[in-house]
Simulated scan of single mutants.
Amino acid sequence: MQRYVDWLNTKSPYVIENGPYKPASLAQKVTILKGFFKKLYEWQYITTPLHLGFQSTTLTEADRPNRDAGATHVKYLLELFEELGHIPMFTIIHVLTTTGIRNSEFCRLKVGDVAFDSINQCYYLNVIAKGSKLRQIPLRDKTLKSINLFRHARGLKPFLEMAKVDPNAPLFTTNTGGPFNSSYLAKYFHRQIAALPSDRRDEIREVFSYKEREDPLDESSPIINKEIKITPHLFRHAFAIISSQSNIELHKISQSLGHENIQTTKIYLEKVMAIESHAINSWDQNLFGDYI
């Protein structure tokens, strides 16, 4: 398995064509393999704990892809697609951001997953998360409206009406009427943005660009423009960032996202929290006067 990991990052077809994997991508692949063999060992399919033999992968902050999208970024995209009348993209972004659900969770949603809470007098989603755990996620009125707009644009019945006929029907469908899957949804995002007029794509690049050193660990390396890649997962990070900036406790954000470990939530909010908690933000203006 160690030889396989070495091959994966040196001689695999992807690497030959595109060059080495980014550290975060390689770490993700190794983590999946370790998790798979750990489960095989726990379920006694194998008797040797192969997962312990994998080399550990340690990511620095510089290795992680930048997914720091906040309210300004999301509002820009929502306003853009609303203006263009692109209801599917508007709805998908709106739902992903206001629920914080994973790409895969979004794709699995059925019309019967929308339920009504008679105590709090609100609708919510029953979402089956990782490990087959059930999460119940409130749906705001405008999110509900967006869902039905999407269904109307696709020629589908409103979700409440459809739930009485077939509760297992997909809540969101592709333009051919089938359910989304994670890979297709990611490609759908890429295609819809690529199909925008060139001036709008330029605007998106400007809004989602940031400056960073070519080598973040080398103070002498040149500063270059980079872009935040717009993927479905980006809006899960946006949910965390907008929640943090709304002064919601870290524990509540972690619970809402369905993270088993609060450290995962901290990674989502690492840069934002570092800036928010910096000592300069609490300086007494009386001590430094007009120079702060």
Rank of each mutant, 00 (worst) to 15 (best):
D6T: 07
V15Q: 04
I16R: 09
I16G: 02
I16S: 06
A24D: 08
L26A: 07
Q28Y: 04
K29L: 08
G35H: 06
F36D: 03
Y41Q: 02
E42G: 13
W43F: 12
Q44A: 10
Q44Y: 11
Q44M: 08
T48W: 13
T48Y: 14
L50P: 00
F54W: 02
F54A: 06
L59K: 05
A62F: 15
N66L: 05
R67D: 12
T72H: 06
F81I: 07
L84V: 02
H86A: 03
H86G: 04
I87F: 02
F90I: 02
I101W: 00
R102I: 11
F106A: 09
K110Q: 11
G112Q: 03
V114Y: 00
Y123V: 00
L125G: 03
V127Q: 07
G131E: 07
G131H: 02
S132L: 08
I137Y: 00
L139K: 12
F150Y: 06
R151D: 06
P158V: 07
P170C: 06
T174V: 11
N175T: 10
T176L: 06
G177Q: 02
S182T: 15
I193M: 07
R201M: 13
E203Q: 12
E203F: 03
R205Q: 05
V207N: 00
Y210D: 10
P216C: 14
I223P: 12
I224A: 08
N225W: 15
N225A: 15
I230M: 08
I230H: 00
T231A: 08
H233V: 03
L234G: 04
S243Q: 14
S246V: 14
I248K: 11
E249W: 05
S256Y: 05
T265P: 02
V272W: 14
V272I: 11
I280V: 12
I292G: 15
